[in-house]
Design a protein around this nucleic acid. Structure first.
Lengths: 194, 194
DNA sequence: GTCTATATTCCGATAGAC
DNA sequence: GTCTATCGGAATATAGAC
């Protein structure tokens, strides 16, 4: 398999960047082509339509997410800490693709939502296998998702939150660890009950 | 003060609905006017431009959020449980406005992000005042935000999650309660240390 | 493969009747 | 206050040269 054409990736990069910085409305084929440094005709050669561009973005998301699941499973600090820590940042290639895809969310267009939900579910499966308790696994997902949401609210420049409602990652990890240990302790007391 | 004109609210309702169901791109002035049952000229009379429509939406969000803060402070189950519980649903008037505003998020347009961040910060202040520990308050916010994010991923129709990664609200509340009590216990042991 | 030029549809906003 | 009609510009997509 030959190396993938660089132009395709440049176009997808520009597509993502425009979605994040200027929203769906201003992300026209013209603007994407200009930002990618190609002509509109050149863009259309790689992605035959606007829909094809979205498909390309979702395909990239699935690839990057699959690679992330591998990293997550093998993370030295464990999948839970890995998930929370990576959810706090918003500047890795996967983060950019994820935020860009979120900008395309809408009810009448199920594909984007389906891919996002599928990726989400795969992360959950890894978490569930790592921590025994499904309820705790779900809670860890919620915390990670909350950090991800907060990262999209602040403008990735950081250091501009009005109050100190932005949490520190290590602080969060400490609390989660505390909860997990508290749960294990309470299970030892009444092992197998109810 | 006379009762506010019904047409304005009908237009804002349609604006929100279209943003949520069809995204920013398809939410044109034409489509909003049609969905609201008025003509384009009639819409423009109330909102002189597209920007004015967005301002109207953000103004409504601030009003509804302020009312929600009052309810949150006086909630019988406490602000923390109230916040988590309301974050799980996505069909109250406030939820609709919030999700619609989220569809307008983009870096180059700071106003939407500022309003969303300000609302977020006010909720945090109530939480912080209710639970003593700021770290726990931040964690509760994260969990609520995570539930909100999950609610936007599933298509509000519910009952269609591929795996069982969607958490139950009461289960989450139980875990949070467990963490709060575990924290209080550990503080009694070493009160005021480090 | 990448470009320019063009066809067609549609959007936001204005003008002005009622 | 609410409507119809319309202008200027922009968006998607196609045709075809290089």
């Amino acid at each position: 398999m030959p190396p993938p054409p660089a132009a395709r990736d440049k176009v997808l990069d520009a597509f993502q960047r425009l979605l994040i910085e200027h929203g769906e409305r201003e992300t026209t084929l013209d603007a994407v082509a200009r930002a990618a440094g190609v002509s509109k005709g050149g863009l259309i050669y790689h992605f035959g339509s606007r829909e094809a561009l979205i498909d390309g973005l979702l395909g990239r998301l699935e690839t990057q997410a699959a690679a992330d699941v591998v990293l997550m499973k093998g993370a030295p600090e464990g999948p839970a800490a890995y998930y929370i820590r990576t959810s706090a940042s918003a500047d890795t290639p996967l983060d950019l693709t994820l935020v860009a895809a979120t900008r395309l969310l809408q009810r009448s267009h199920p594909r984007t939502r389906e891919v996002l939900a599928a990726v989400h579910d795969r992360w959950y499966e890894v978490l569930r296998a790592a921590v025994g308790d499904p309820a705790v696994a779900r809670l860890i997902m919620l915390i990670g998702d909350g950090m991800y949401y907060g990262a999209t609210l602040s403008g990735s420049d950081a250091a501009e939150s009005s109050t100190s409602s932005v949490p520190d990652v290590d602080e969060v990890l400490r609390l989660v660890d505390e909860l997990v240990r508290s749960r294990e302790a309470s299970r030892e007391v009444s092992h197998g009950t109810s």
